[in-house]
Amino acid sequence: MNGSSSDRATLSRRVVLQGIATIAVAGVAGLRFDLTGAFAAANDAYPEDAFRQKSEADAIKALYGKTAEASDKVRLDAPEIAENGAVVPVSVSSSLPDVTSIAILVPANPNTLAAAYRILPGTTAMVANRLKMAKTGNVIAVVEAGGKLYSAAKEVKVTIGGCGG
């Protein structure tokens, strides 16, 4: 594992917050590091459960196990008006240090979570992609930085929906 000690600490916090309360209670640094490896592998799996959630809060909780606060350091670029909801260009970037993950949510869609990106050490805190939007609504960007979650939202008006005829 080539992550720095702060990466490890971040990962540990994340694991703890995912419900391993016993580790927090024990609070033994060595024990936490030993477990980090095992849970890092579990963390690596496709977050199937998070992608099934219907609400923004549930999806963020399933993905990260915590809640996000609004931040002007999360930059979300999306069009004001999307003529075609099947292809809405969305990009997210952040000036926050130690960004480890970026997620994009569309609460108006049948399933809220659209995409989740792992930002590995050395990778820039920026991602651009194209998403489907069923109807007019918010696009929400969530950035995990230093173990905390920050978010930004923008409304996109959709004139033709992207989830069906």
Binding site: N111, A115, Y117, G122, M126, A128, N129
Partner: peptide, 24 residues
Amino acid sequence: KPVFVADWGPAVSKDPYLKFAFKG
């Protein structure tokens, strides 16, 4: 060495496009 991992749901558009950058 892994530099980027994308987890996608079905809300990603047909013929997905992705842009990112890394140091090095």
